[in-house]
Design a protein around this nucleic acid. Sequence first.
DNA 1: ATAGGGTTAG
Length: 732
Amino acid sequence: MKKGTTFAFRNFTQLFTLRSSLNARNLSTRPFPDYSPKRPSVRDTELVHQIANVIKLRRAEPLRRSLKPYECKFKTDHLIWVLMKIRSDYGLVLDFFEWARSRRDSTLEALCIVAHLAVACKDLEAARSMIRSFWERPKLSVADSFVQFFDLLVYTYKDWGSDPNVFDVFFQVLVEFGMLREARKVFEKMLNYGLVLSVDSCNLYLDRLSKESDEKAARVVGVFREFPEVGVCWNVASYNIVIHCVCRLGRVSEAHHLLVLMELKGYTPDVVSYSTVINGYCRFGELEKVWKLIKVMREKGLKPNSYTYGSIILWLCRSCKLDEAEEVFREMIRQGIVPDTVVYTTLIDGFCKGGNIRAASKLFHEMLSLDIAPDVLTYTAIISGFCRIGDMVEAGKLFHEMLCRGLEPDTVTFTEVINGYCKAGQMKDAFSVHNHMVQAGCSPNVVTYTTLIDGLCKEGDLDSANDLLHEMWKIGLQPNLFTYNSIVNGLCKAGNIEEAIKLVGEFEAAGLKPDTFTYTTLMDAYCKAGEMAKAQEILKEMLGRGLEPSVVTFNVLMNGFCLNGMLEDGEKLLNWMLAKGIAPNATTYNSLVKQYCIRDNLKAATSIYKDMCSREVGPDGKTYENLIRGHCKARNMKEAWFLYRGMVEKGFSVSASTYSALIKGFFKRKKFVEAREVFEQMKREGLAADKEILDFFSDSKYKGRRKTDTVVDPVDEIIENYLVDEELKEAN
DNA sequence: ATAGGGTTAG
């Protein structure tokens, strides 16, 4: 840590001592050119005079009507001559220019003139939209147009406005359109005329540069160092942009130094400065530093806000510490900070990803009751939560609700719904949403296609997946590693590991490097095929390439050991992971729990379960389901019931097969009331029971028994409906 | 000027 700190500090001292290329510039300034327009002929002068008079005298009328008599005679050349006559009346200038534009009679020179006049009248927005309109039209050569435009703006400057703000607006539009090289040229050229662009303009440039790409972001610090030498006076916002940029590049301690440095230089860091560094530390999980900084900012009289807390909450969510995240959230509210849509969305998404859709729903309703409006991102998060647990009905309802609120789903929202249908195995519905989104004018992206391809691969329909891959290419979408990994997985699951390995070789030859996901997929295939030796060979190759195995890599191996009855190796692997400090997760333990349950060794399963709890690895839905099914099979209904209650309490959703296991277990124990209760709950959740269970409830023996049982009616019509449904399904 | 949502492997 110490080493990094000195390094960062050296970087920054350098920053303010190095000389830059800008310094060597020739400092003599050039005057703006004179404006010398073409002279009108006598005939033209007459027409221009008439038009200008008509415009002035009949200003209440729409120009379309008052200028009707001149429509035929009016030529593009007249435009500027008329503007010269009416230039003192800005309102007329705008109207007249619009009229000329609607006839496609405008020129770039006229556009520059009107922009100058707009800026001179302090109508910066009009000037901006005019300059924007030029770039919005498709150009043959962007660079040529830029030079042409800029030269004309300079040429018309002295005569038409002489307000240097026009160059700020011009520069800002270039930045807005990402034409950073051109923007930089404008900056330099203005220096030649003795003009320095405003800090606000330079800030926009810095910010855009920092977001463009990592290479460009790396240049931000250089620009920040050079611009003051030619007269730019940075402000707190500039520092904040640079701090943010340096954080994004992962150099958080350097950003922290900048925060200290700005104060030394007489700038007062604000909540944003602090929150930005705090966000940087959060991204790397350095929470001690975060709390320290919060203390410092409080001492300086700054109050952390929802951004500050939001960063902390996001990090806690990402590290699966949902309880702590909610605690920080409540603490923030206690401090009198009103949570916003973003903080709620962060928490809702966190709970959804953690599989606790109930907590997510609760928060969602809480925000509604507090009148904090959910946005598209909030809906996407909660919809994805329901998709994740396979509840497409609820997901559909929320989607509809979102539309009713006037929120427009975007590519992400649609992709999420498509993903939900894919994961639910409803490919027809997935494709129907895909069509729907295209009709709604929303373009599917690489992720959308990858989702569909993955869905098809999981269905085993590799031909269709391949067709989609070609379709992607055709519409100009480049498949990425995710896409190929899905197909590799598809091939593996179809039992074609050879072909999968061949594909890996192909995309690698095309310049796409296989990653940990690719190798883990291949390992999984070999593990499931019982070829543990080959799986370990793949692991070796992966390690040899310097790729870091993930928890999942180990989980795959663990699962392989368990599946192949090598439970001792499995436990050895677990201990090895613990010794090496690789944190196992619920899945790691689940493989062992599941396998012990399958082998009816509930004692060993329970001991693994207790071990994971003691290591503070929270059991997930699968852990509970495996244990519940194991206990049901062993007819330990007391334990099964206890775990079921715990699972529900924690907000995990219970699958149909677990409900079935419970019902069957209770039946075998002749606990009909409990069986019934679980069955009712299952129905309430809209889950269909299998035939065996329905037979239980419609069995004559059961009916006879039920007569002494006063709780429920003998034959429930819902059961009959279910039976009819099942028969229909079978008939189809 | 600062913070939040989607795709792959168990």
